[in-house]
Amino acid sequence: MPIDIDIAHVARLARLGLSDEELSGYQAQLGVILDHAARVQEFDTEGVEPTAHPLSMVNAFRPDEVRPSLDRREVLEQSPAHEDGYFRVPPHLETQ
């Protein structure tokens, strides 16, 4: 049974501006995939700890040392818009 998901909400969370048509296409595909993925729920994992990571390493740190930063010109050159050394974007919703 395909799983029915609130695709519009998920797309909003992921900041993907999709048309209604696209949304319903993805909703159908994801329903089928999730139905398959839901098999993880049938698997008996009683008493099994989750693994977030294949490594059993701990404490990977760096010393508090300053390293050279990037050249600002090179950084801003790659940006879609910049002004006075800043990245420039359209205004936030709240500031409108």
Partner: peptide
């Protein structure tokens, strides 16, 4: 390793990690 300094010119204490450039990875400060 970018410097913590609040008086700098904008976007001068930045690197692939703190700008989230593709491929960069974080390593925590001890």
């Amino acid at each position: 390793g970018c410097r913590v300094d609040f008086g700098s010119e904008p976007n001068t204490n930045v690197c692939p990690v703190c700008l989230a450039l593709p491929g960069a990875l974080p390593v925590p400060n001890e």
